[in-house]
């Protein structure tokens, strides 16, 4: 006979994902009340924007088991696409955002289809090359992109009469997007599709023998991650009203990868942690500015050497195994 308390615990266990999302949502709604410093809000908004990119990238790296060193390019397509679509072409912001995401999806299809036939380093090369190509275009084609000095005057987003034009408004805007992306990704990995992807990441042959269309799955995840990066880029452009090529070079792509690794490959929740840590790190070690790169690199190397599954996943896995073994010892 289950007591009320058991039932409560069972309910919590059953809905743990939904409840955690809800709790995080409540904290986020209340956050601007507690933290009114626009600089700090700006940082947390940047975390939200990056998290959207890194969520998609983590699906691609951690679930599909593939490498992309070019996600900043899709981020750029979203940002510059929205900038050009709204300013140069005078289109309405929201439809432009969707159209640009569609373009990003098509480009991902074109890059991914041939590259994903092969594994590992070919994809690393293709995505890196793609990033370098996009970056060069941003810098060189100044008639359209504004060149190295950037693209200014991007309009703020509006819904009805609400204009998203200050850090508090941005907060609600970008975190809504981030939470929706988080929820969608959590749903995906908890489904049959997600299990197929997890299988694919560990053993392609076994996954295929179980009925996973491995090639198609990889291309789909790549496209999904490109769309998320593009949407994040559009948000980035509309919030800062200004974009310049330096936000989209290959080192930014590498930073995205570091965020994935720190959070843990294949850990959706870890993504938030990894993104936050790597975004905030430069703030905390400002005094050590010149050591910044070395510290970034050391974090990456240490995690990969000692917890190859990533910080969060590694610790969670270790604890889980420990608990399981203890319980049955």
């Amino acid at each position: 006979m289950l007591t009320t308390r058991d039932n409560l615990f069972y309910f919590i266990y059953l809905h743990r994902t939904g409840l955690t999302v809800l709790a995080l949502g409540v904290v986020l709604v209340a956050w601007p009340v507690m933290e009114s410093n626009p600089y700090n809000l700006g940082l947390s908004n940047l975390i939200a924007i990056y998290a959207i990119v890194v969520l998609g990238l983590n699906l691609f790296i951690g679930y599909a088991g593939q490498i992309s060193l070019g996600h900043a390019a899709f981020f750029a397509i979203g940002a510059y696409g929205s900038a050009i679509g709204t300013v140069t072409l005078g289109g309405p912001a929201w439809p432009v955002m969707m159209a640009v995401a569609l373009v990003a999806a098509l480009i991902a299809l074109a890059v991914g289809l041939p590259a994903l036939k092969l594994s590992g380093h070919y994809l690393a090369m293709a995505t890196l090359g793609f990033n370098i190509v996009v970056y060069t275009i941003l810098v060189q084609w100044d008639a359209v992109t504004g060149g190295p000095s950037g693209f200014a005057g991007i309009p703020y987003l509006t819904i009805g009469s609400v204009v998203f034009d200050n850090e508090i408004h941005f907060h609600y805007l970008v975190w809504t997007f981030a939470m929706v992306a988080l929820l969608l990704c959590l749903n995906l990995v908890r489904s049959g599709v997600g299990r197929g992807l997890a299988a694919l990441a560990e053993d392609e042959t076994a996954a295929a023998a179980l009925g996973v269309d491995t090639r198609r799955a990889k291309v789909k995840v790549f496209i999904l991650s490109a769309v998320l990066a593009s949407v994040a880029g559009s948000l980035f452009a509309h919030c800062y009203a200004f974009v310049s090529p330096d936000s989209f070079n290959i080192f930014v792509s590498v930073d995205f990868v570091i965020m994935v690794v720190v959070g843990g490959m294949g850990s959706i929740w870890g993504t938030l942690f990894g993104t936050a840590l790597i975004t905030l790190l430069p703030e905390w070690i400002e005094a050590l500015e010149s050591f910044k790169d070395i510290i970034h690199g050391l974090i990456l190397v240490m995690i990969l050497l000692f917890l190859p599954q990533g910080l969060v996943t590694g610790i969670v896995d270790a604890v889980r195994t420990r608990i399981a073994l203890n319980r049955h010892a």
Partner: peptide, 10 residues
């Protein structure tokens, strides 16, 4: 591969 990227950054 990510490890070599980390080493490269260092």
């Amino acid at each position: 591969i990510f490890l070599t990227i980390g080493i490269s950054i260092i």
